[in-house]
Nucleic acid binder design. Structure first.
Lengths: 215, 215
DNA sequence: GGCTTATGAATGAACG
DNA sequence: CGTTCATTCATAAGCC
């Protein structure tokens, strides 16, 4: 295609150089990342909230197998964070306190107990689960550049999708959920990799609007 | 605005084909839409977490302004195995691979992807659910008589009650309220609150309104 | 068209 | 810590 449009290319270079194009691509990638994060966070919070407001525990209150002497044991064997609690936990999680110490746990528990019943164990478990989940979703495979001798044939598809947003002409953004689970979820609830782009990425979003306007 | 589109569309032909350009545009539009809606939702949640019951579906599902050519967001569809996939899964499950390692998961996913869209997570979940379901069928069939009910409850309780390092369910000893959270739900959300922790509160996305505008 | 059932997905808790 | 289990939620499929 290079030959065919060479002439037009000369004109083109004035308005959009390759560097600019690259920058655009990066910006979109950053955009995508942030969208994904937003979506996940929203889903986590909204889902919980919705469920709770709809009386989540109300469904199975009557357990015929309960001992008659005890008023209402049952119902809840598993702690469920209230929306407020969840929100606070999420905030703390991505604030950078990735390693909640024992002391930190106590503090958090103390704060959360103002918004609902909770125990330190709950908080501890929550952070453990949160971390594990993030990790699993982000990097199911391998280290930095390790060459997998294992049979990994499949995950390529998903990884590529993120690396090059428009490389394949495939323009399914993060939330474009197909019939299957959304591909490539950078679900770590951090904003962006501090190392990779730093503040650049954030500002990039501002620049992107210009292109959007042009379109 | 139209002129701008025409010009840039033409001049950019060197580095981007028209198709790529179109793809880019759609992608940006999609992201803009997604972010716009997400931000709106977040704002609503932060403002009043109580009265948005009907808002969840209304805002997302019925969105006529979807970017053309972009798959509808918020489909929220869940993966459903095709008959072929299901058959393969059943076979593998029945074969005795009771312990699907991650490696196996990848292989299986790879194979199943030839018969329809699927991800590793789908396979993982399927096996998890399958196993749980099998177990549940066996377990309830404990005693021949009414003892089953008691045994059921007891086994559960003991399992859960076990040894707890500290705190869990023993929150309000005086009253049997069950281990679930207290009904107190303060509507205070510090979700997108800039003042709460300052720093990067994820919403550099405040700028997102611009995208919506352009879009 | 709504309700019920089946089942994929989410997640708190436990295990090693 | 990473993986697995058990339970619950939400939704597609099945029914009336």
């Amino acid at each position: 295609m290079e030959e065919g449009v060479a002439e037009e290319g000369a004109v083109c270079a004035k308005v959009m150089t390759d560097e600019q194009m690259e920058a655009l691509r990066k910006q979109i990638a950053a955009y995508a990342t942030i969208c994904e994060q937003l979506v996940e966070m929203h889903r986590a919070i909204a889902a919980r909230q919705d469920s709770l407001s709809g009386m989540r525990l109300g469904s199975l209150c009557s357990d015929p197998l309960m001992a008659p002497g005890v008023a209402k044991l049952s119902s809840r064997q598993r702690w469920t964070p209230t929306p407020t609690q969840l929100q606070i936990l999420e905030t703390i999680f991505y604030e950078g306190n990735g390693t909640p110490s024992k002391q930190k746990i106590k503090e958090i528990t103390s704060e959360l107990s103002q918004h609902g019943q909770i125990s330190e164990t709950n908080v501890y478990n929550w952070f453990q689960n949160r971390r594990a989940r993030s990790k699993r979703k982000k990097q199911p495979a391998a280290g930095p550049n390790a060459a997998e001798s294992e049979a990994e044939v499949e995950s390529l598809n998903e990884k590529k999708a993120k690396a090059e947003p428009f490389a394949h002409g495939n323009l399914s953004p993060a939330v474009d959920d197909g019939p299957f689970q959304s591909p490539d979820i950078s679900s770590e609830l951090r904003f962006a990799d501090p190392e990779s782009n730093g503040s650049q990425s954030m500002f990039a979003l501002g620049d992107i609007s210009k292109y959007g306007d042009a379109f």
